[in-house]
Design a protein around this nucleic acid. Structure first.
Length: 589
RNA sequence: GGGGUCGUAGCUCAAUUGGUUAGAGUACUGGACUGUCGAUCCAGUGGUUGCGGGUUCGAGUCCCGUCGACCUCGCCA
């Protein structure tokens, strides 16, 4: 070892010891006669002192040190003079008096300094990721991630789960997200697909009798990026045989309680609350509601139907809804201009036609440019329905049900943040269950699986598959944390006939099914046990547990929004010979 | 594919209505200083205002295009 201790290790106990530390030059404080240097590694910082009573050559060498040089320093641990201890530093009781300095590697002047107060811009951070990762915030997050993964592995190991790796090179299945493709050299003209998830493999493992499987699996989806979405991400993936939905949910409840306790010091009360999909949509307009605060959606369609206000009346008459929410005490927070901004938000981002609003005055009187279109009685009933009190701001949207959901969910989240309706460190865990089996795809004019085509309907809904698929509910469950979908799972179909029926319903004909999923349909006929599982987005979990607002900060080497790696320059062009070998030709537009 | 924000010194930012020689902090270089810890003090270097075009007597500022980062809708079984 080139060092005897780390830079976060030395305490008063080691006073008098001769030590060698290695690390990066963090900051220098040169007083002419005396020179202080903070030496940094990922464990902490230690103050190194170049004192006048030491060798003059050392002081000269110390003066030549610059930010981010890597050095080895030997010397004696000494107590700091009384009054100069640094309480902000774990090693603040001591300092190391230099006996020997060795520069292991000079650094160019870095474009960013790890201990800088201001955070550098993100493109700079991504380009110089090796410097960015030296920052304590990044180290904190990656260490949190490591601890989470360790806890997860221990948790599942204790419960008899087996970690089994599944292939990265698989078969493309055009359903779901766009695949990342890998050309085959051995069989030119054919392609592997990188896994969107290990879904089919883990079902095969259940059929193979490995009744408790777990994997921390890398997954790939070639779709557009978001703050919480990367093309390459990590799932905590698991599957269990001989279980129902409650069993899977129970296992994850226990995991969340363990993670919250160990990583955040929060005690969760179990079981975690559950809500049906229908209830979530009705009360919050979204299948992953942020339950850190209330401000629930209110349906006033029946009241709107009788109003003179044409937009409301006609919307309801044509089968739409008028729904809204009550921003408590927010009437003064939003000026006309502020409300215009909210209007632009719901019309621009969610296609709403407008935003109706009322400010609640004394005696719960509703004031608004459109108020004259409503009878006093209707206004009073709206106020009552929305539990309006003086100072509140009522916001209403009249549109198709789907649009009211999207727009009001967006509005609710935005207002929740702007009005600070929750605390920074607050966490809320819950389940949303009983999703519909199918949603209608207008573009393709067919039914599409809401979760995936291997999802089992609830036993009591199975009879409706043929006649009324829209009423069919799935044995599906999503874990929701602070309004983010942290994960989702289902009980799978373990019966080949039922699986074929669902494929037919989804417009996947027998030939296609046989080509793409033949191995699964085949396996289902050789003693497939009832089984189900779940996958959690690990990067998102880290983001949520770390109190971060984007997933890139949870990943050591993330991609930008255009899916490039600013450090390596990936993706890049390849040699013509490589392409020829693969039988791949670039078409230039 | 659509909408939006941003791009000025190595870094973080400023620059009035379009108006003189584009500034500040920090970093960097040199100097002073024996107890600092974001050290301090003095001096100095540092700019193709992302790139290309246009409007104008005059463009960091306005217009068009383009590149890049971020947010977002669509998309993400």
């Amino acid at each position: 070892m080139l060092r005897t201790h780390t830079c976060g290790e030395l305490r008063a106990d080691q006073i008098g010891q001769e030590v060698t530390l290695c690390g990066w030059i963090d900051t220098c404080r040169d007083h002419g006669g005396t020179l202080f240097i903070d030496l940094r590694d990922r464990y902490g910082k230690t103050q190194i002192v170049f004192a006048p009573e030491g060798e003059a050559a050392n002081l000269e060498a110390g003066r030549r040190l610059r930010s981010e040089d890597v050095v080895s320093i030997s010397g004696k641990v000494a107590p700091r003079p009384a009054g100069t201890e640094n309480a902000d530093l774990a090693t603040g009781q001591i300092e190391v008096r230099v006996r020997r300095v060795e520069v292991l590697n000079k650094s160019k002047v870095p474009p960013m300094k790890p201990s800088a107060k201001e955070q550098p811009s993100e493109d700079l951070r991504l380009k110089y990721r090796f410097l960015d990762l030296r920052r304590p915030e990044m180290q904190r997050t990656l260490i949190l991630r490591h601890r989470m993964v360790k806890l997860i592995r221990d948790y599942f190991d204790e419960r008899g789960f087996i970690d089994i790796e599944t292939p990265m090179l698989g078969r493309s299945t055009p359903e779901g997200a766009r695949d990342y493709l890998v050309p085959s050299r051995v069989q030119p003209g054919t392609f592997y697909a990188l896994p969107q998830s290990p879904q089919l493999y883990k079902q095969i493992l259940m059929i193979a009798g490995y009744d408790r499987y777990v994997q921390i699996a890398r997954c790939f989806r070639d779709e557009d990026l978001r703050a919480d979405r990367q093309p390459e991400f990590t799932q905590l993936d698991l599957e269990m045989a001989f279980v129902d939905a409650n069993d899977v949910i129970g296992v994850i409840d226990g995991l969340m309680a363990r993670l919250a306790r160990e990583l955040l010091g929060i005690e969760l009360s179990l079981p975690l609350p559950r809500m049906t999909y229908d209830e979530a949509m009705e009360r919050f307009g979204h299948d992953a509601p942020d339950l850190r605060f209330g401000m629930e959606l209110v349906d006033v369609s029946d009241l709107a139907a009788t109003a003179d206000f044409r937009v409301f009346r006609e919307t309801v008459a044509s089968g739409g809804k008028v729904r809204g929410l009550n921003a408590k005490n927010a009437a003064d927070r939003y000026s006309r201009k502020g409300i215009d901004e909210l209007t632009g938000y719901v019309t621009g981002d969610f296609g709403a036609k407008g935003l109706a609003w009322f400010k609640v005055g004394d005696e719960r009187r509703l004031a608004s440019p459109i108020a004259k279109n409503f009878s006093d009685e209707t206004l009073a009933r709206i106020a009552e329905r929305m539990q309006a009190e003086p100072g509140d701001l009522l916001l209403l949207i009249a549109d198709k049900w789907e649009v009211t959901c999207k727009a009001l969910n967006g509005l609710r989240r935005r207002l929740g943040a702007e009005l600070e309706l929750y605390q920074p460190g607050q966490m809320h865990f819950s389940w949303v269950v009983e999703f519909p089996m199918f949603e209608y795809d207008r573009e393709e004019a067919c039914w599409a699986a809401m979760h995936h085509p291997f999802t089992s309907p609830r036993p009591q809904d199975r009879a409706m598959l043929a006649g009324e698929p829209e009423k069919c509910r799935a044995q599906a469950y999503d874990l929701v944390i602070n309004g983010f979908e942290a994960g989702g799972g289902t009980i799978r179909i373990h019966d080949q006939k039922l699986q074929s029926q669902v494929f037919r319903l989804l417009g996947i004909d027998e030939q296609t099914a046989a080509t793409r999923f033949g191995f699964l349909l085949d396996a289902l006929q050789y003693g497939a046990p009832p089984h189900g599982g779940i996958a959690l987005g690990l990067d998102r979990l880290v983001m949520l547990f770390g109190g971060l607002d984007n997933i890139r900060d949870c990943i050591a080497f993330p991609k930008t929004q255009r899916a490039t790696d600013m450090m390596t320059g990936a993706p890049g062009q390849v040699d013509g010979n490589q392409l020829r070998e693969l039988g791949v030709k670039i078409i230039r537009e």
